[in-house]
Write a protein that binds this DNA or RNA. Structure first.
Length: 333
DNA sequence: AATGCGGGGCC
DNA sequence: GGCCCAGCATT
């Protein structure tokens, strides 16, 4: 084993954060943690990890739950396909297969998550390359734009013999998460500083690829019926969750005609996604249908904003219960 | 290889 | 406001 590998492992033994899934043996619980951690910071994932496992403690419990129930627990965590895929996975297999190759075929498990579960839960010697590992290795070996395949081959070759692969993978990720940071890396505190070829100008490794999120204009139509708001199951973006009709502005007249209403403006809502800046004009109308209480459904954050903007309409005749809304963090204007 | 998919924290 | 996060699926 090389000196830098010893240094990393020694650092990890001393500095590993105490996280709920550290030391966990149950492969299912490790899987849940890894899926929740996809593109999600540790601090954000922890409460969902606890909530999810309290409600679905085993693969069997998850399998027997309804998708909507699963989404309700996932509400707020984002990337809702992860929840859908986890639910599908539970239907697909009785138990988690103990190998990287088999795990990688399951819904929602790509190369990273399959490798993470295989190495951490089952001890398989396979490298798990996430954004942290990519950044750490890019800097350590001064690689500006390493390709994914090369990076995996490199990481695979770096797995030390006689070290638990799950521990090694986590040590590399931990370093990236708390020392080898994207913006302000703490090189003076880094156990690998003496070995790092990219330390001088860390900004080059890896080279950031920039793109700015374009703006997208949409309209949201809040229809207030006798018993509440008209909700649809959303398609595409926010798939599986619920919300009011959301569409491009040019569809307004067609939508109004379909519902038999004339709408009026309630205000604008801005919502930033990673690759889009949404500018949503919220419109409302009284509608002869029934509708329902929206706060009982899994809603994306955008729809919470839309409904908050529509609060003056919702308060109309007290059809929608404001206490329910406030329980969801919605405050009157 | 590029794009869509959430939400939150940090600068 | 931009950037990034223990990525995956689709094209």
């Amino acid at each position: 084993m090389k000196a830098w590998q010893e240094a990393l492992l020694a650092w990890y033994r001393q500095n590993a954060r105490l996280l709920p899934w550290r030391g966990e043996k149950d492969p299912y619980r490790i899987l849940v943690s890894e899926v929740l951690l996809q593109q999600t910071r540790v601090e954000q994932a922890i409460p969902y990890y606890r909530r999810f496992l309290e409600r679905f403690p085993t693969l069997k419990a998850l399998r027997e739950a309804s998708l909507e129930e699963v989404l309700k627990v996932w509400q707020g965590a984002g990337y809702y396909r992860r929840a859908v895929n986890l639910h599908r996975l539970a239907q697909r297999v009785e138990e988690l297969p103990p190998s990287f190759a088999e795990l990688k075929g399951l819904p929602g498990l790509g190369p990273y998550t399959a490798a993470a579960v295989a190495s951490i839960a089952f001890g398989e010697r396979v490298a798990a390359v996430d954004g942290n590992v990519r950044r750490v290795l890019s800097r350590l070996f001064a690689q500006e734009s390493p390709k994914e395949k090369e990076l995996f081959a490199l990481a695979q070759g770096l797995l030390p013999a006689d070290v638990d692969p799950g521990t090694w993978n986590q040590a590399l990720m931990e370093l990236g998460a708390v020392v080898c940071l994207p913006k302000n890396p703490r090189c003076p505190n880094c156990p690998l500083a003496a070995f790092c070829q990219g330390k001088g100008d860390w900004g080059r490794y890896p080279l950031p690829r920039r793109r700015k999120a374009p703006e997208e204009r949409l309209m949201a139509l809040v229809l207030l019926g006798r018993k509440g708001v008209h909700l649809e199951r959303l398609q595409g973006r926010f798939q599986g969750l619920y919300g009011v009709p959301l569409f491009p502005p040019e569809e307004l007249s067609r939508r109004e005609a379909a519902f038999g209403v004339r709408s009026f403006p309630l205000g604008e809502v801005r919502h930033a996604l990673t690759h889009r800046r949404l500018l949503v004009e919220v419109r409302g109308a009284l509608w002869p249908g029934e509708g329902e209480d929206p706060w009982k459904r899994p809603l994306p954050k955008l729809m919470e904003k839309v409904l908050r903007k529509a609060l003056p309409l919702l308060a109309h005749e007290g059809v929608v219960s404001l206490p329910d809304a406030e329980a969801h963090g919605v405050k009157p204007l």
